[in-house]
Design a protein around this nucleic acid. Structure first.
Lengths: 239, 239
DNA sequence: CCGATCATCATTATTGATAATTCATGGAGA
DNA sequence: TCTCCATGAATTATCAATAATGATGATCGG
């Protein structure tokens, strides 16, 4: 966005200009982001009721944006809305989490294969930068920011495949998997371990060998949840 | 101010606008259903702009429900909303359709495996009834109603698996696949053929053999799209 | 003639107020 | 005591109107 502003304002473009624009008019997305964060982190327990007007008062906006945010959360699978009865934080199950991991694995591995021929050095550099950012966040133990950085990394690679219709599905998988991993941290890996897995993916991408890329992705994705097997037992159309 | 509304509605009303008129009652979901139908059937071509106030005027409700419907359509991947710039019918690609078929296959096959132990005779009868309904619709050549009946059939089976978090993903796959199949009917099977495939699924379910069930599901699902071979050309996580 | 600046317009985003729906509670009657 | 119905509170759903935003084309200075 900054580039387009710079294009339309060729005159001065003072550096402070970017900071002037604050959350004006983005109330809806802000509410959505905050609620999503609280749910993924487990601060809002499953079954918790979310009242539209109550949230609106708390946030300082009207019912409309809150309503919109709750709707998006429902599409994410994080809340359930029941007619005129109310909105509640949804419940999770390990079985679903495992299946979601398998789906995510399938989507990302296929996307990586499609993206492999069109990878550019600049993209690889971009990915490397994101890994560094992730490690930085890992040092600060900012769990939620890490999940976002992780999502960004994987989405950056995924987008190269040119399958935009699958992106919302993948995002959904990210959200629910991360939520499950955070709220049930039975034997989770350390954040730094996760970052190192990304490095091996990047190395495989640099190498350019299809099999190595797919295998590193599989390993990394399945490592998020304990129960998920790397083989994706009995799944796809592949006989 | 009616004059202001009239001023904002372009004089050139698209030909499909008359079809969004709906009976009465629950406006919000009705608008969503109508628009979804028109898009899946291809009456609304890709790239077509959808203006909230224009739709509201055509349907006879306010902007809110229409807005909500457009949001749901975006989550379904049928439209794209761009900031303050407008809403447009999304575009499809065969590559995405093939990948969606693979995903759907994976989800349903896994779900069927989970559901197999808990199948009841009444559920099987229910499925049989739905097949008959589908054949009835096939005789009337009501394509969209058939897609809905097909969805109902598969969802009925899927729900037995007890993986509610995956249901929206599956619905998404249904919608986009059906849309692609209808709007690009290059070498589609006849509706009756599709119904017979369901019969073979039901027979396999009655038999209770896991492999037979999974295989019949695979065949049926992959037959929806031409490009998707049962072998998973460019397909499965299995290399 | 070309590019930057500005006004205009179509459109979405938000607001405040009102209607519709559901659920629980309490009281009347058998 | 138990059942059933009215009633009220709580909540979502809808509406009409206003504000904010980004694109488009006109205007003005080089």
């Amino acid at each position: 966005m900054a580039s387009r502003v710079a294009a339309t304002v060729p005159a001065a473009s003072p550096p402070w200009l970017a900071e002037v624009r604050l959350p004006q008019g983005a109330k809806g997305s802000a509410v959505y982001g905050q609620l999503r964060r609280l749910i993924v982190l487990g601060r809002l327990p499953a079954g918790e009721p979310l009242v539209e007007l109550q949230l609106a008062a708390a946030v300082g906006c009207s019912q409309g944006p809150v309503r919109e945010a709750l709707f998006r959360l429902q599409e994410d699978g994080l809340v359930q809305r029941a007619g005129y009865r109310g909105t509640f934080v949804s419940r999770t199950s390990s079985a679903e989490a495992e299946e979601l991991v398998a789906l995510r694995c399938r989507i990302e591995v296929q996307a990586a294969r499609r993206a492999l021929p069109s990878l550019t050095p600049s993209l690889l550099e971009d990915l490397a930068t994101q890994i560094e950012r992730m490690e930085e966040l890992a040092r600060h133990e900012d769990l939620y920011a890490m999940t976002e950085a992780d999502r960004t990394f994987h989405l950056t690679l995924f987008r190269e495949a040119g399958l935009p219709a699958l992106e919302p599905i993948l995002e959904r998988c990210f959200l629910l998997i991360h939520r499950h991993a955070i709220t049930r941290p039975e034997r989770r890996r350390t954040p730094m371990e996760a970052a190192s897995r990304h490095r091996s993916i990047l190395a495989a991408l640099r190498g350019g060998e299809e099999e190595a890329v797919m295998e590193s992705l599989r390993l990394h994705i399945c490592s998020v949840i304990d129960g998920a097997s790397p083989l994706g037992a009995g799944g796809g159309p592949a006989a």
